[in-house]
């Protein structure tokens, strides 16, 4: 199938601003799904609220556009009640890690087979540019007019600490890597987290004088490096890209099947 067979064309052009990285994330995700030859009926996409959440309207899967921060909780209900389905949960950084932070760490802890994508644009875009838990110290936002004193989470470290069994990071510039990582994440049996640095030229870029979408993608190119590279040793400020964790652990739904087996034997 072609990429366009996976989208709801009648809703295009989409709602995202010119140069928004989220469109590129959707592009890479569709290519990953296409390369796996998955049927549209076996995929459920669950999203929350915010710019990121609009992705679920554009893809032709079973789509569940939920409430702010709770996408992973809804997805947990879908997955556990019908484990053969593939769950993909794209979230924004505020959606996943501020209001949804608790669900994020607990889904990771359970190692339930869901692919969580954190589309990190470091800002609340839909509401007009307030700082998020990934904006970082010293950034500017409409709710940090004198500069932000909140420190940022490191999504990757957080996911690893919470127990995610697949953790990766890429950017909207590194599309070939991103697509490959998303493919691996979907294939991974367990909770997978993919953080994607995704530019918001309209709010984060403008507020922080980072230039156009193109300029911001140039920064992703220059400010990131493959995991464990020589460049990282020389310049510790570089952000690492790649797969940080990929390990096999008992998956939640499989474990629950064992509980059912145990309970039924006792009958």
């Amino acid at each position: 199938m072609a990429i366009k067979d996976y989208i709801r064309e009648r809703f295009f052009p989409h709602i995202w601003c010119p140069g928004c990285g989220h469109g590129t994330v959707m592009n890479s995700l569709l290519r990953a799904i296409e390369s796996l030859g998955m049927s549209k009926n076996e995929i459920v996409m669950v999203s929350g609220i915010g710019c990121s959440s609009r992705i679920s309207g554009y893809v032709d899967f079973h789509t569940l556009h939920t409430i702010h921060g709770r996408a992973l909780a809804f997805a947990t209900g879908v997955k556990l009640s019908r484990p053969e389905l593939n769950l993909i949960v794209p979230m924004g950084d505020g959606d996943a890690l501020a209001i949804g932070g608790n669900h994020f760490i607990h889904a990771a802890r359970r190692n339930i087979d869901i692919t969580a994508i954190v589309m990190n644009n470091r800002i609340y875009g839909m509401t007009g540019g307030q700082f998020s838990p990934l904006s970082g110290y010293g950034t500017m936002a409409t709710t940090a007019p004198y500069s932000n004193i909140d420190h940022a989470f490191d999504t990757v470290e957080l996911a690893i600490a919470a127990g995610a069994t697949f953790v990766a990071r890429s950017t909207s510039y590194h599309v070939k890597q991103l697509s490959k990582i998303l493919r691996d994440a979907i294939l991974h049996e367990g909770f997978s987290v993919v953080e994607v640095l995704s530019q918001c030229p309209t709010y984060f870029g403008r507020k922080n004088r980072l230039g156009s979408a193109v300029d911001m993608m140039e920064q992703y190119k220059n400010d990131t490096t493959p995991i464990g590279s020589k460049a990282k040793k020389e310049n510790p400020d570089l952000i690492e890209r790649g797969i940080f964790v990929q390990k096999e652990m008992p998956e939640y739904c499989v474990e629950y099947d064992k509980i059912i087996e145990k309970a039924m034997k006792g009958n």
């Binding site: 569940l64 939920t66 909780a73 809804f74 556990l80 608790n102 629950y256 009958n267």
Partner: peptide, 26 residues
């Protein structure tokens, strides 16, 4: 689980309500 069905203890009531909505849709 005795009848092959599923129970989950969620991280809070928000998540519990969300999870049953997801499961109803299947």
């Amino acid at each position: 689980p005795q009848k092959g069905c599923r129970f989950i203890q969620m991280e809070d009531e928000i998540a519990s309500m969300s999870a049953i909505i997801g499961a109803s849709l299947t």
